[in-house]
Design a protein around this nucleic acid. Structure first.
Lengths: 161, 161
DNA sequence: GGCAGCGGTGATACACTGTAACATTCCCGC
DNA sequence: GCGGGAATGTTACAGTGTATCACCGCTGCC
């Protein structure tokens, strides 16, 4: 379980993500089926967060029809394995370039201009949250930290014009 | 705009919330209509987060039918005024006992056992988030911080049994 | 071989959440 | 009275997610 400080710079390629997913499943004795692979690929190759219905459409477009319910099941599986995250504020899904468990002090940075979702994490933030929860007498099980705003690239682009 | 450190202990009564809502609207030259009042009341008197359709049902039960769309409009208004918050992970709404603007370093603590949603905020958490965002070169516009887990009361209750 | 059990998938239907579009009402200022 | 704006009513619909049952392929077991 590795950690990052600040911006998430390790933009893994689609092929790498699939390979890693397969490895993880094999290690855990789980099946990385064709459907799960296709869904993982669809999420990974999209530049931004994808809705379940978008994924279903995308997979159906290349031949065999895939029902949304199948996509949801595959997504549930991939989320349990920490390979995909759900963005609650968008009802959409993104690939996870690392392998962290859910609720681990990771913040999602959602650019409202270009739609790209990035991850950031820091000890500092996590500690602050932990202490705040402890003071409130609350035992966390799962956290959702999402910030909507403008990413650096989009802000610069706006200033140019 | 007052601040809290730690657990939110100021559990305002329903009557107080309504009075405060009315005052705020009058101060801002906005209408606190009967519908808005009813929706505010429904949200305030429920012990836990309410879905928009729950509210519509509740209001319809006592006589005149209220369509969900009307509830949504009232909720939008109340959210703009900071009187109500939306819990993204539950698609539900809670009253806000304070008067903060959205995205102000407030964390929602959602008890997965009893369903009660509490608010907590701290400078520490907010600073940690700010610094993390700055390092990532991200300009925040709106934050969603929600933690699901067990509140103190439910944890104790479980240990008793 | 036959057979129960189980995980994964297909397929249909449905529930829940949210919004668009347009009609109506009410109130305020002129 | 009359135009105009804000709030609400009404209908329809889009988007998101789940329940249910059937089926298939595999494995272990008798």
């Amino acid at each position: 379980m590795h950690r990052h400080e600040g911006h998430d710079a390790c933009h893994t390629g689609v092929g790498d993500m699939l390979a890693r997913a397969e490895t993880i499943c094999r290690e855990r004795g789980l099946q990385f089926t064709p459907l799960r692979r296709d869904v993982m690929e669809a999420v990974a190759e999209a530049g931004k967060a994808q809705g379940a219905y978008d994924i279903a459409e995308k997979l159906s477009a290349r031949g065999k029809r895939v029902a949304p319910v199948s996509v949801y099941r595959a997504l549930d599986f991939l989320m349990e394995q920490g390979l995909v995250h759900r963005i609650a504020s968008r009802n959409a899904f993104i690939p996870c370039p690392h392998g962290h468990a859910p609720g681990e002090g990771v913040v999602f940075l959602i650019c409202r201009t270009c739609g790209v979702v990035d991850e950031a994490s820091s000890e500092e933030l996590e500690d602050g949250l932990d202490r705040t929860l402890k003071r409130a007498g609350f035992t966390p099980a799962h956290s959702i930290l999402e910030v909507e705003g403008d990413c650096g690239a989009c802000r610069e682009r706006r200033q140019d014009s």
